[in-house]
Amino acid sequence: MLSVVLAGVAGRLATLRVADTSNRYYLRKAVQYLTVVVLLFALALLWQPFARVPDSLQQPLHTACPSSTATAG
């Protein structure tokens, strides 16, 4: 939601000094897409620490799965 608002505002501000309508349109679109890409990149950087599971909560693979060495009776 924030990226949509910021992209719109940044696009409008970038085109204030451009007189040609066609150039203004394409500049606004470029700035909007660039703003969304930058904000998605920032979100990926900020999200990474929250996506990791602390080592104290991780279980080793051999305890998470049933033992394959158990004999069937």
Rank of each mutant, 00 (worst) to 15 (best):
M1V: 11
L2W: 08
V4S: 14
V4F: 12
V4E: 12
V5A: 10
L6G: 01
A7V: 00
A7Q: 02
G8M: 01
G8N: 05
G8Q: 00
A10Q: 08
A10T: 09
A10R: 07
G11D: 03
G11V: 02
R12H: 02
L13A: 03
L13K: 11
L13N: 05
L13P: 00
A14G: 02
T15V: 15
L16M: 11
V18Q: 05
A19Y: 02
A19L: 09
A19T: 13
T21L: 04
S22K: 14
S22V: 09
N23K: 14
R24P: 03
R24N: 04
Y26A: 04
Y26P: 00
Y26W: 15
R28D: 04
R28N: 08
R28V: 01
R28T: 02
K29Q: 09
K29I: 10
A30S: 15
A30T: 07
V31S: 01
Q32W: 02
Q32S: 12
Y33K: 02
Y33Q: 01
Y33H: 06
L34V: 10
T35Q: 08
T35W: 02
V36L: 11
V36M: 10
V36H: 06
L39M: 15
L39H: 06
L40S: 11
L40V: 13
L40K: 08
A42V: 13
L43C: 14
A44C: 10
A44S: 14
A44R: 10
L45K: 12
L46S: 13
L46M: 12
P49M: 07
P49S: 06
F50R: 11
F50M: 08
A51F: 10
A51H: 08
A51Q: 12
R52P: 04
R52T: 06
R52N: 04
V53Y: 03
S56L: 09
S56A: 10
S56C: 03
L57K: 13
L57W: 13
Q59K: 14
P60V: 07
H62W: 11
H62N: 13
C65A: 09
C65K: 12
P66Q: 07
P66R: 10
S67P: 00
S67V: 02
S67F: 05
S67C: 01
S68C: 01
T69A: 14
A70G: 03
T71A: 09
T71G: 02
A72R: 15
A72V: 09
G73Y: 05
